[in-house]
Simulated assay, not measured.
Amino acid sequence: MPGGTKRTGRLTKRSEFLAARKGRRLNGPYFFVETHLRDDDAPPRFGLTVTKKVGNAVVRNRIRRRLREAIRVTAGEAMKPGVDYVIVARRDVLEVAFGTLTDELSRRFDRFDPGQSPNAHQRRERRNGV
């Protein structure tokens, strides 16, 4: 595997996607990532969501292919074991440079702290008056 040595799995069941929805959400300009901490140390898994609002089937599949390749090439290294990631894409994924896309994915994966509760960052912002 060029660029990466870590194996990643895929989310396939609706229940896995829904579980990630209850976890922490990491926003970005081209997509947002929903995370779910599992009870094991198995390799990380990811799922992709591209809604019909983004475009027709050709556009949605192209976005999915770009995201899968970005994870395979570099961003998969930043994924933590025992965590499920659901990437919900926006249309801007098509226009952004591939290097920027991989950087943004890695940045979102690095921001996830498994020890932090899902809404801890919101509570901290409320306390600080943000």
Rank of each mutant, 00 (worst) to 15 (best):
L101C: 05
V59W: 05
G76D: 06
D41K: 04
E16C: 06
Y85I: 11
R7E: 07
T8F: 10
T74E: 10
K6A: 14
V33T: 14
G3Y: 02
G115H: 00
V58H: 09
G129S: 05
A78P: 02
R25F: 08
R72E: 03
G115M: 00
I63M: 01
L26N: 13
N27G: 09
A120E: 15
D103P: 00
R10C: 04
E95V: 06
E69G: 00
T49S: 15
R66S: 06
F109I: 02
G3E: 06
T102F: 07
E16S: 10
T102R: 11
M79H: 04
T5W: 00
N56H: 08
T102V: 13
A89C: 09
E16Q: 15
L101P: 03
L67M: 13
G23L: 08
R60W: 09
R62F: 01
P2C: 07
A89V: 06
S106A: 15
A57C: 09
I87P: 08
N27A: 12
R64E: 05
R107W: 11
F98R: 01
N56Q: 07
E16Y: 03
E125K: 15
R24H: 10
T74I: 00
K22T: 14
L101T: 11
N56T: 01
R72S: 01
D40F: 01
F32K: 02
Q116L: 15
N27W: 02
R90V: 04
R60S: 09
V73I: 10
E95I: 04
A19R: 14
L11W: 10
G4C: 11
A42R: 12
R25I: 12
D92Q: 10
I87V: 15
S106G: 13
P44A: 14
E16D: 14
A20F: 10
G23H: 12
V50E: 09
A97V: 07
K52L: 08
V86F: 14
G99T: 14
E34F: 12
F46T: 06
V96N: 02
A97Q: 14
N119T: 03
E34I: 06
A89D: 11
T5S: 07
N119D: 06
R68I: 03
L101E: 06
V33K: 09
L101V: 09
N119S: 05
H121N: 11
S15W: 04
R123L: 14
R64F: 01
T49C: 13
R10T: 13
A70K: 04
A20R: 03
G47V: 13
F17Y: 15
F46R: 05
A70V: 05
T5R: 12
Q122P: 00
H36I: 01
R38W: 11
R90K: 12
R66Y: 12
N119E: 07
T100K: 00
A57S: 14
V96W: 00
N27T: 07
L101F: 08
G28K: 05
L37Y: 01
V130S: 02
P43I: 04
G99I: 02
A70L: 03
L94N: 05
R111D: 10
G9I: 12
N56M: 02
I87C: 04
G115C: 00
T102P: 00
R45Y: 05
R111F: 09
D41M: 01
Y30E: 12
G76E: 06
K53E: 08
A89M: 11
T102E: 15
V59D: 07
F46N: 07
I71H: 01
G4D: 03
G28S: 15
R60T: 08
D110G: 01
